[in-house]
């Protein structure tokens, strides 16, 4: 019984993959290498396979982390803010409860009347729906941030490279 052309191609292909993956040894490897030397087609197929492997390795190395979660995470706080806007006053109360821990240092900041327009806070701000405010939520890690919104058509968010202890702002401007 002899193998038909399709079976032969299949066997050759299987051996080619096995050789490429380093799975052939001893006599099988010697036989395949002899066949490889004689067959330009086989040489071309092996080269293609090696090229494909290299391409895949390069792609894996360059592939960044899947962006799906990043995209979702980017939108989550905004979705909360939008929901809070829709809920109105109760949401503001909920915001007040959440924010109370970081509003405590505001007393020290309020001592400086010059900081009415320049709102400096460190790390985190969360606000439900202060009328007219542009920044609804911000997280700057441990970096300090100035939010300058004293111009009607402009909001400047100046993220400093370093952290500033005790410089915290949250809520509406009159609370400063």
């Amino acid at each position: 019984m002899s193998a038909g052309p399709r079976e032969l191609d299949g066997l050759r292909e299987a051996r080619l993959h096995a050789y490429h993956d380093g799975e052939l040894s001893g006599l099988s490897r010697w036989r395949f290498e002899r066949e490889l030397r004689r067959s330009p087609t086989l040489q071309r197929e092996l080269a293609d396979l090696q090229g494909l492997g290299e391409l895949l390795r390069r792609h894996d190395a360059q592939a960044s982390t899947p962006d799906v979660w990043d995209s979702i995470a980017l939108r989550l706080p905004a979705a909360d803010a939008r929901r809070a806007e829709g809920e109105g006053a109760p949401a503001t109360a909920a915001w007040g409860a959440r924010a109370s821990w970081w509003l405590r240092p505001v007393g020290a900041l309020a001592a400086s009347a010059a900081v009415v327009a320049t709102l400096v806070f460190g790390g985190f701000l969360e606000e439900a729906a202060a009328p007219g405010s542009v920044v609804r939520w911000i997280d700057s890690g441990n970096r300090s941030v100035m939010v300058l919104d004293d111009q009607p058509d402009t909001t400047i968010i100046w993220v400093l490279d370093g952290a500033t202890e005790g410089a915290v702002w949250g809520g509406r401007r009159e609370q400063v």
Partner: peptide, 18 residues
């Protein structure tokens, strides 16, 4: 720098130090 949510009106300039 920072992650934020901002409600920005048309034509409003949101300026961020990056």
């Amino acid at each position: 720098a920072a992650k934020m949510d901002a409600r920005v009106q048309n034509g409003h300039l949101l300026v961020i130090r990056a």
